[in-house]
């Protein structure tokens, strides 16, 4: 089962579409509510990251009988120091984004906390690919 969501840059009101869509499917698959919550939080954070920091991208969820794998691919600008980006409280968010209540430096750490596996590949100037999975 594959679900694909386009995420537009700067559209904060649309963040949450992918997490809600994935949530509906997981409920129909009778996935444990606590697991659903972890997945929804991770997906939502990833969505906000693409909206707030990138020029836009795609979120793809692959659901199998025992696992969900989410691939978040954006088209730039990329993360120059991934280790730093993973630190709680570190953020490159603009003042405008912070004023909207985002950019607390919790995004990637929160994704890490809620997933079983997480890999980040990034090429500055080109884009970032985030892959995480959670067993269901």
């Amino acid at each position: 089962m594959k679900l694909v969501f386009e995420i537009a840059r700067g559209d904060f009101t649309a963040a949450g579409k992918a997490s809600s869509g994935i949530k509906k499917v997981l409920k129909q698959l009778l996935v444990d509510p606590k697991t659903i919550k972890r997945i929804v939080v991770a997906v939502y954070e990833a969505e906000v990251n693409v909206v707030a920091h990138s020029v836009g991208g795609t979120l793809t969820a692959n659901i199998s009988g025992n696992e969900i794998t989410v691939v978040v691919q954006d088209y730039g600008p990329g993360i120059s120091d991934i280790e730093q980006a993973m630190k709680v409280g570190f953020s490159t968010a603009s003042r405008k984004v912070r004023e909207m209540g985002f950019g607390a430096g919790m995004g990637l750490p929160n994704i890490k906390k809620n997933t079983d596996e997480l890999t980040i590949q990034s090429q500055p100037g080109k884009g970032t690919m985030l892959v995480f999975s959670i067993s269901i």
Binding site: G16, S19, S20, K23, I36, K37, V40, V41, Y44
Partner: peptide, 8 residues
């Protein structure tokens, strides 16, 4: 409730 489930 949808938002609550999403921690929003």
């Amino acid at each position: 409730l949808e938002r609550m489930e999403n921690n929003e």
